[in-house]
Design a binder for these strands. Sequence first.
DNA 1: AATCTTTATCGTAATTTTACAATATAGTTT
DNA 2: AAACTATATTGTAAAATTACGATAAAGATT
Lengths: 108, 108
Amino acid sequence: METTVKSYTENQIDIARIAKALGHPARVAIIEYLISVETCICGDIVNELPLAQATVSQHLKELKNAGLIQGSIEGNAICYCVNEETLEKFNNFIQHISKKVIKRNSCC
Amino acid sequence: METTVKSYTENQIDIARIAKALGHPARVAIIEYLISVETCICGDIVNELPLAQATVSQHLKELKNAGLIQGSIEGNAICYCVNEETLEKFNNFIQHISKKVIKRNSCC
DNA sequence: AATCTTTATCGTAATTTTACAATATAGTTT
DNA sequence: AAACTATATTGTAAAATTACGATAAAGATT
C-alpha cells in the first residue's frame, strides 16, 4: 500500500543543500583552509588545490550559494570567510541526529 | 604562480563522502525517519517519501555505501539502522570546524 | 506449490556536476 | 595608459546523479 506520499520539509531541503555543498573533497579542503587562516583570497586557495582556477572559482560559488561562505571585495582580491550562521545550523542538526542515534543500535 | 598543487587528504575525501550522502532531501528524510523509530524496514520508508520504491532503494544504497546506515536481513524485510560510528565521525568534524569559525569573522 | 510481500537490480532518460581552456572584468602597479 | 594580477564567466565535454518502470530474488503466507 503506498498511500502516504509526503514531501520534504523546508529543513530537510536546507540541510541537504548544505551537506551537498560539503560533498566534494575540494570544498571540504576550502572550508578547512578558510578556517586555518585569518583572511584569504581565492589565489591562495587555488594553490592549495589540485584544480584549475576556474574550477576553484566554481567550487567557491557553490559554497557561497549554499551559504557556507561569504565574500566581500577587498581591493584587487576577494576576501572569503566561512559563514558562521550556516555552519552553526548544520552543526546543530548533525549534533541533534548524532545524539539521538547513540545507544539505540539493538537491531543491526 | 601555481606551484604548490596538493591533493586531498584521506579525511577530506571521507568527510566529503559522508556529506555527499546527506546531500539530498530524501536521504536526510531517511536518516531522520530511522532515528525516529526503533527498528525499520524499507517498506515503511517508501511510504514516508514521495518517491518510487526503486528510487528509495537506490538512496538507501548510497547511505549504506557512505557508511551512514547499515542493514541486516530480518525475515522478509531488511532492518536498517543509522551507523553510530560514521555519524559520530562526521559530527566531530563539523563541530571542530564550527568551533573554530566562531568569533573570527572580522573581514567579511 | 502457488501466490504474496518486500527489497534489489537493470535499463534508460533527463538533469546535474565536475573540470578546464579561453576570455572577460576590474582593480593595481609601473 | 599600458601591463599586470586576481577572480569570474562562458562554452563545452565527460561523468555522475536522480528517477522510474520492469523485472528479479527470496522469504512468508495460503
